[in-house]
Write a protein that binds this DNA or RNA. Structure first.
Length: 324
DNA sequence: CATCAGGGCCCTG
DNA sequence: CAGGGCCCTGAT
């Protein structure tokens, strides 16, 4: 097969709602490393599947917080129809939540006694991920009951076997396969990639997406609780995975319902300065304090911590919790 | 060498 | 609703 060359380029500009924080939106340092996207200050690359095609995207910051502007360069391997470009733009806008109105959250954030400096630092950051609902679901599955190292291994093995390699702009990234690409893949074949019991989840979920049991478009417009119920019906999706999916894939950042054990440990430290606080208490406190903005508020504090770590700050209690 | 828990979820009793 | 089993790995 002839290697596909993503050398053609189309460009457009998006003006996100203000205030906007480019790096806080396009890079989340707490996430595990995968060849799905790449980031440098003011620049972001990803391979995005929209409709039937995959595109290489380079997104560049070309505005300021108060007058935000991003430039999108779309790399492709054939001539594009105008409608395709329009679809790509709409998808970027949705996935990175570029049109959202955070003024209410920002008002509350300014008045926050403890964390106002953090909220100010990241003001304009969005709940965002480059992945579709199906793609994030796959990522959540390989996160289940695994340490970071194992998650990375599983993800790489899956991408190598079924992902679409997109060489563009002198880098190579992968797009996750489509649900229907799993149709002729056996559970046995998946297990050979050492994903263990998750093989069955991947098969069943892919089938559900093909059959239309899950409708991403519908879920995007549901209220928080309906979306959660819908997602939890799926085989392999429990409370933790639903939480991951609702935010950021659905931009539902209402009250939190679930805290994973390792998050509980980290929340205990950052919100209470203690070793371990009961998850139910943490949930109640955070939801009382931040209400419908809980998930967003917590993510600002959470990512801020991982930004410090990324910049080389030693956080002695954090390291043992991030097992590589 | 064996045992065990892990960034969950399903199934059973 | 509590608890066992699941795939694999690295830690002990």
């Amino acid at each position: 097969m002839k290697p596909l060359v993503y050398a053609r380029k189309s460009s457009f500009v998006i003006e996100p709602s203000a205030p906007f924080h480019f790096d806080g939106t396009f890079h989340k340092p707490s996430r595990f490393p995968a060849p799905l996207d790449a980031w440098d200050p003011g620049k972001f690359w990803t391979a995005m599947r929209v409709g039937a095609s995959v595109y290489g995207l380079r997104i560049t910051n070309s505005g300021v917080a108060s007058r935000p502007k991003i430039r999108v360069d779309v790399f492709h391997n054939r001539k594009l129809a105008a409608s395709e470009l329009k679809a790509v733009r709409a998808e970027i806008s949705w996935r990175f939540d570029l049109e959202t109105d955070l003024s209410e959250f920002n008002r509350a954030a300014r008045a926050d006694r403890r964390f106002a400096p953090i909220f100010r630092r990241w003001r304009g950051s969005r709940s965002a991920i480059a992945l579709s609902l199906y793609e994030l679901m796959i990522v959540s599955i390989v996160l289940q009951n695994a340490t970071v190292r194992r998650t990375v291994q599983m993800m790489n093995a899956l991408l190598e076997a079924f992902g679409t390699r997109i060489p563009f702009d002198s880098r190579t990234l992968y797009a996750i396969w489509r649900p229907r690409d799993m149709r002729d893949v056996s559970e046995h074949e998946l297990r050979a990639l050492k994903v263990g019991y998750r093989a069955r989840f991947i098969k069943r979920l892919s089938d559900d997406f093909v059959a239309g049991t899950v409708d991403e478009t519908a879920i995007r417009s549901m209220d928080l609780e309906s979306a959660r119920r819908e997602l939890m019906k799926l085989y392999g999706v429990g409370p933790e995975t639903a939480q991951i999916l609702l935010y950021p894939a659905c931009h539902r950042c209402g009250p939190m319902h679930h805290i994973a054990p390792w998050q509980q440990k980290i929340y205990s430290r950052i919100f209470y300065g203690r070793r371990l606080i009961p998850a139910t208490k943490i949930l109640a406190d955070l939801n009382r304090r931040y209400g419908m903005w809980s998930t967003l508020a917590v993510s600002y504090v959470w990512e801020d911590l991982f930004w410090w770590r990324k910049r080389g700050e030693q956080i002695v209690w954090l390291e043992p919790e991030i097992r590589l």
